[in-house]
Write a protein that binds this DNA or RNA. Structure first.
Lengths: 241, 241
DNA sequence: CGGCGGGTTGACCCGAATCAAAGTGCGTGG
DNA sequence: CCACGCACTTTGATTCGGGTCAACCCGCCG
């Protein structure tokens, strides 16, 4: 069903985090250590590492045992699973400020394969640090649980919005989803095969619909071929089906 | 797209929990207060209530603000959401021992509508009690997080197994999913419309496939029309597509 | 220059949606 | 107790969206 090119495994580059990294963190103000927990980073930072991933790099694989969680500084990571029919499915996308790999906190094996979609930078945080912080400040629990609630919410969104309705609606909803944090700026769209794996349709259908949208003037390209602009209200009309 | 009969709102019956309820809890040994936390129930029980739901009863609705979580003693609850196209989708099923409504812990509004599929009994636990217990025993956090991880895992399962592949595979996978806790006993299958809402197919397609399975001898009925038996290995072959 | 990864487009076909009509079982009220 | 109505299921006929297979284009890199 799904072929699958071999990914490059492991990270592109890795180094210790510095206070300057935190100060200039592009994910400042969102995510696990934002707000009330900014101060803590100052002394937690020793355990942090900054990782750099190129597109198609694999961060971890289904079944790996991990002792770290990852916070996205910028870029996009897809979380994959395979069905018993061998089909690849993208079950979630992580973007700036999102935390991935929280399943490591319960000591269980990774339940996804994580692959970079775009050039991506992450902050790797040992689970040890998270667990210690939970003990040190009980309010930190709420933060961790909020991250998990966010993941659940996204999973439900994928089920209701990206797995129902016809292919046109799904593509439109995906675009709305990808654009929602972009405040009118141009938004990234993944390559056709990934759109297929996100929506449960084939690459060809994804391609046909995206180019139909383009021909209809519903979306227009940006400088960067992977980035587009569109009118939200119009797209919502298509999304509703 | 999706019509929707009006559900009966609210519970069928409700009463205070007694120590005898805990002692005879059908969900004994699994779920939030099992194992190491059994003892705690003895004094937490004051806040517990036992609820009884008839099929189609609505426990809570999307957007409700709740201050309770619910542990299933027996029965089955479907958690629904509606897509922007207005289509109803079942995003999760809760069964014996499962905890639902954990989103109440973060104080946010309910993110699903919860409706009984079969006659169902639940134990209603005030969020207050859960939060107090988290403070009293830090290990209880792990229990709560494990429940949330379980929910996430189920959501991902629904995405990979129940939303990909052709209709035959999906129906087969649903049956395997419903049977997996039944250790060879007959297993419950929902009415056709719910099968449709679980798999993203129409009621008619669900009906056709179930009766095809029956005619092929892949599944055989039990006394109860809603319960069936089948050979797991054979069903797995169909599930793989 | 040639090869390759991604994207686009076309022709064809099949699976599932849709629309429609009976069939079945059950609870209620006469 | 039976008959009626209702909810759910089954089945059929037809349509249509999207899958499949295949050719071709384009830009990039070795």
């Amino acid at each position: 069903m799904t072929t699958k090119t071999q990914f490059r495994v492991g990270v592109h580059a890795s180094r210790r985090a510095t206070p300057a990294d935190c100060a200039t963190c592009p994910a400042e103000g969102i995510g696990l250590f934002s707000g009330a927990f900014r101060a803590q980073r100052a002394y937690l930072i020793e355990g942090f590492r900054i990782l750099q991933l190129a597109p198609q790099d694999t961060l971890y694989r289904y079944g790996d045992t991990a002792e770290c969680v990852f916070i996205l500084r910028y870029g996009m990571i897809k979380l994959l699973r395979y069905s018993s029919g061998g089909e690849e499915r993208i079950v979630r996308l992580a973007r700036r400020g999102d935390t991935i790999g929280l399943d490591a906190l319960s000591g269980t094996a990774c339940r996804h394969t994580a692959v970079a979609v775009t050039p991506t930078a992450l902050c790797r945080v040992p689970t040890r640090v998270v667990i210690d912080e939970e003990k040190a400040d009980p309010r930190f629990i709420d933060r961790v649980m909020a991250e998990m609630q966010g993941e659940l919410d996204q999973a439900d969104l994928f089920l209701t919005e990206l797995s129902t309705g016809n292919a046109h609606s799904r593509v439109a909803r995906l675009m709305l989803y990808l654009a929602e944090r972009e405040q009118g700026r141009d938004c990234f769209i993944p390559m056709r095969e990934d759109i297929g794996a996100l929506l449960g349709i084939t690459m060809e259908t994804a391609s046909r619909i995206v180019s139909e949208f383009r021909h209809r003037g519903l979306i227009r390209g940006s400088k960067d071929a992977q980035r587009i602009l569109f009118d939200v209200a119009e797209m919502q009309r298509v999304a509703a089906g």
